[in-house]
Design a binder for these strands. Structure first.
Lengths: 341, 341
DNA sequence: CTGAAAGCGCTTACAG
DNA sequence: CTGAAAGCGCTTACAG
């Protein structure tokens, strides 16, 4: 009995506009796509009618015809339960990506992949759900990259390029990052500057270490292996490795930590054992997550310009899809000085 | 010269399978959709071929035919620059949503809307990009809700239902949350418990206040208006309002803060003026963001079971789309005791 | 239990 | 500058 708003369903199509304008569907389609063949008068008339009728093009139909989805999938891990602060970096990047994508008329799909799943690329590419991928996953990233390269799937990844495969990448300038961080600590007059790194097998970490070494040498300091440890980026490992650092080199007066989360963990340990930050031990983190401004003391850190990273991931991937041009982009970093160093 | 992997493009279609199986496309379609009309033998043969050929159904075609996108859009604000910690709550909820959606074969689209944009619902619904929306936006939420209700768009929103409109909602149990928080503080023996609330016009905040009042009364304490202030959930406003609270009621010995971020801001102020947490002032937050475990002292807070919230948002929206059943779900809360109280 | 046919709404050679 | 027609890959009455 009650009137269902079914009439709303009869979405206005190109055919409706053609009828009203007294032209063919071809003409309407061309006019709406601003095809130069169509006369200005015709175009205006058609656009006016489209506006009046609140015409919305049917994307599935368009995608079917064009054989492209105008959609990019953002690939990350399912946490199964929820996001954790560990994903902050990933999350903060989303804003930049969507805005870069939107500028070019692309949608962003969230894709949480199971680390063991090998079928997701086909399920999205062949199925016409997405035209390409943005890879932020850390776990099993190499395996995913190999898979994607082998199936010639368009994607871009955050991180140092793999030497054997050719694909688009965006990375931060880790060498400079390490140099800035350690240089700042040296400039503060610190003499026994430790390095609390990410996983030692990661190229990013080696580069940061190289920057760190360079800065120490330039400051006339030596790189003491006792003051170098490696963790896994998490705040937990930051705490743990800070402890072993203090065991091995109890006299350290500064530490360059490879992630903000690790730095937060490290600062907690320092506080627990009664060391003041920055008075006794100065701390520099990495990533400039927004969380760095909320902790006490606020964290001096290396900023990767996350919005820019997002935008570049979007733009370079779309460029690759269109031109197959493989880009490797290094994003500049800068030191953000706060209270901890 | 170099062989382009173009042959990969000839995605296998239903017609290919039909040819190979020696049946009609209709039969293949039915078999693949597990239509009971099709004989088991036929089904098995067809499924085997589909598997062998790595068949992936073409989603745009399917969506065009079925007139539904099997996609839900997650609506939030474009930060224009990047996510901030303010969006942590929103972000943490994404995992639960996607998993709930995936279970039912739906994709999740990220939609960053401009607060003033009024066109996004049509651009997604009428265009066949999405079948419904999940609303997490706080700014201008009411305006968006009004718009969606008026155009009869399927959506679900996080927050207390609007009295005049009928739509699906999911909320936390704010009354109990307030009671748990204040009750815990009273149980600790605190006598002058302050309330640092969210915006006073929000129903959620009133409910938390009501819970707070109840708990105080049950503990034989009085609710002193001098110990009640309101902010806007941000850590900045937490700091600011904590200051005015201390001005007005310098003798307070505990504070129930309506968001973890505000609580973090408040704790910074307390530390600055030399009050120890929890010794001098005990602090309870709200939301149980993962950040609460990273701050010092770790934050006692009210947990909203974020993964469950996400899952319910997904499930109830899909249910609404299918049945038009309007649900209002209240998610249980629990107190998570850490160091700050 | 299976098939032929129409249709979903668009785009784009091809022909004027 | 414009139109008729075919086609993208699927689903589903309708007819056996």
């Amino acid at each position: 009995m009650k009137p269902r708003a079914v009439e709303k369903k009869k979405a206005c199509t190109i055919a409706d506009i053609a009828r009203e304008a007294g032209v063919s569907k071809s003409t309407v389609s061309r006019a709406l796509n601003d095809n130069p063949l169509i006369g200005d008068g015709t175009k205006q008339k058609i656009n006016a009618i489209a506006k009046k009728r609140h015409f919305q093009i049917n994307m599935p139909a368009r995608r079917l015809t064009l054989k492209q989805s105008n959609t990019i999938a953002f690939v990350t891990h399912s946490m199964y339960k929820q996001f954790s602060v560990c994903d902050l970096f990933t999350m903060e990047i989303l804003g930049g990506i969507t805005s870069g994508l939107k500028e070019q008329g692309y949608d962003l799909l969230m894709l949480f992949v199971d680390p063991c799943d090998a079928d997701w690329p086909a399920q999205h590419l062949a199925a016409g759900r997405a035209d390409g991928f943005i890879l932020m996953t850390s776990t099993r990233k190499q395996a995913h990259i190999k898979m994607l390269v082998e199936m010639d799937a368009p994607f871009i990844a955050w991180g140092i390029p793999h030497p054997k495969y050719s694909y688009c990448t965006v990375i931060g300038d880790d060498l400079t990052g390490g140099k800035l961080a350690a240089g700042h600590l040296a400039g503060l007059g610190r003499k026994r500057i430790a390095f609390l790194g990410g996983p030692s097998e990661e190229k990013e970490v080696s580069l940061r270490f190289e920057g760190y070494s360079t800065a120490l040498q330039e400051a006339g300091l030596i790189v003491d292996p006792l003051r170098v440890v490696h963790g896994d980026y998490s705040d937990k490992s930051g705490a743990e490795k800070m402890r072993s650092l203090l065991d091995r080199a109890p006299d350290l007066d500064a530490v360059f930590v490879n992630s903000d989360l690790m730095a937060i963990g490290a600062m907690q340990v320092l506080r627990e054992i009664g060391k003041r930050v920055p008075e006794d031990v100065a701390v520099v983190g990495y990533d400039n997550l927004s969380i760095t401004e909320k902790v006490t003391p606020t964290l001096t850190t290396v900023s990767q310009n996350i919005p820019l990273v997002g935008k570049l991931l979007a733009q370079n991937l779309l460029q690759y899809i269109r031109t197959r041009a493989v880009t490797h982009t290094t994003v500049p970093v800068e030191l953000v000085v706060r209270q901890s160093a």
